[in-house]
Write a protein that binds this DNA or RNA. Sequence first.
DNA 1: CTGTTAGCGCTTTCAT
DNA 2: ATGAAAGCGCTAACAG
Lengths: 356, 356
Amino acid sequence: MTTIYDVAKRAGVAPSTVSRVFNKNASISAKTIARVMQAARDLDYDPNPLASGLASSRTLMVGLVISDIQNPFSSTLARGVQDSLERARYITIIVNTDGDPNKELGVLREIYRRGVDGFIIAPPQHSNAAEHNRYIIDLMHKGLPVVTVGNWLKDARVDYVTSRAQDGAMAAVDHLAELGHSAIAFVGGHTTRGVAVGRWLGYQEAMLQHGLSLCPEWMLETDVSLQGGEEAMTRLLSLPNRPSAILAVNDLVALGAINACRNQGLQIPIDMSIVGFDDIPYAAMAMPPLTTVAQPAYELGYRAAELLLQRMRASGAPAQQAILDCRLVVRQTTTAYRTELTKPSATKSNGADRES
Amino acid sequence: MTTIYDVAKRAGVAPSTVSRVFNKNASISAKTIARVMQAARDLDYDPNPLASGLASSRTLMVGLVISDIQNPFSSTLARGVQDSLERARYITIIVNTDGDPNKELGVLREIYRRGVDGFIIAPPQHSNAAEHNRYIIDLMHKGLPVVTVGNWLKDARVDYVTSRAQDGAMAAVDHLAELGHSAIAFVGGHTTRGVAVGRWLGYQEAMLQHGLSLCPEWMLETDVSLQGGEEAMTRLLSLPNRPSAILAVNDLVALGAINACRNQGLQIPIDMSIVGFDDIPYAAMAMPPLTTVAQPAYELGYRAAELLLQRMRASGAPAQQAILDCRLVVRQTTTAYRTELTKPSATKSNGADRES
DNA sequence: CTGTTAGCGCTTTCAT
DNA sequence: ATGAAAGCGCTAACAG
């Protein structure tokens, strides 16, 4: 293992000079730079990140906090983050919260002690009552760069990137309402925290706008997973006043709901219209192909990383945000509401997606 | 930031004693332990991993090298790794190779300099000609614990975990042959490296066993993605002697192939039987549900991490391996071969999967 | 069982 | 523009 001293000696300069050359911050004469670089090459020198981290408390590591890497939305976002960060020579430490605020707190602590230079939290699982927000906000007050995606922290001046999920949810409800549905359920997630918040809000707002009533039994909190979707739909189907359409908090839940319907012998979309959220790659391949609200997952991650990079360079700069659009992708899990009097109109299956 | 000195002072002991207490290796009197722990609690002390890493060259970090976190197989495996490792207080640094041996080399270097305590490579992209193997093997000779999953390194005594993919591929071909198919193509991946190797071998062996001929045009190397599958199938369909069935290197490719068929107006499985590999969560939800060879992705990751943990504790121990079974899951993308004389037998759609 | 003493490899004032 | 020297916070012999 060759150290900065070896290089310094071979180049005939002081170790501090070598350090300066490698961190290209101070002004060094061109010839010194050349000598140092040559010596470094000769000796195959590579600075030790631990030592430099210890001395400078900059580690070129950032922590990415997501709910679950197995969720395709999260993994796509993660890839966006990594691709951006690696160009700046940062590595990404990915940790999972499973949507549990306590676990989020734990992993946050863990990567904090590891000395990461910043965090991306996608999304923060903020329950308003919580010490969790406090913890994150404390970190920020200590000068730790944080950017959140999806939600942002109340009362904190934070960089964040988000999609117009609320608008997306409204578009989904509009679509369903135009098809004649009035009994529209909202399924999945915790409506008071995490990603569900904006979607839930959009759902309610659109329902109100259309003059549709919000039946409490049509609002189900579940696991954000295939499982959760199946359970929720099963419960919904056992209701005396079952809805004719649902908006799921994400595609996984929607897909699970489709499964549950199929298990009960229901046909989609004839017997139940379903809209998902995210447009994960498999939404298009589902049976039938899923109508959903597409979110730019990769780009959300990439942009979040860019904001973080800026923040880490200029901690004093004003907070920025990037807000990306969602779009409704109409496929084949939604169709016109079937009354007792009219026959269902056949689903279009022209191959191409229609986008709103 | 409270340091080990603060704790030592408050507990009335030497810093090294505090260190010993926290690393629970040496023998310390019970009362000293108690005093130290109390002091640590009082001061809210948390050891600094960078400092300890620098001094001891143990960082409690491990590098996980995968092809792409967006691939559901990889992300499931990654989660298995993380879940195992985090119990031992390690963090996982995930890097992507995109199946490119050069990139693999680059990321390997990067995490090596970061001082990880070990690697999991899933799978190594070994081209036999390559300096890549040398690099990995050199790392091992330097004492760096490595475990590979899927493939293993030639000529190296390495821990690895793998599934019986070759047997799985054979089972898939058996299944197809029993259905009367003889023109069976193999689609996707590089047959000389990465995950494809074993599957390709199994395919060939089974074809031979059934006395079926290996037509060179039926062996397509493609991207391991939806895209790649679409392209490959499109090419296959333009062949004068088009196959009646394909075994895809993984589910993504199979799903892409289904898409291509659909775009050309072909019906699955009537016009083309398709078998995938991996059994990602969406295989079951595809249209039609995909017949595939299931691999225990999460468990592969979990077990790999366990082996690595053992190796990091006892570097001298003999190499171990864990070999897990694959199983054929018959769903609805395969059906009996339709000759000119006989009508196709209808696909079963009894809801439940049949497993071999 | 515990204390003393050197570092681990780099960065960062403070000089010059 | 460059050098000297004092750490960053912890661990690991070596004593005792």
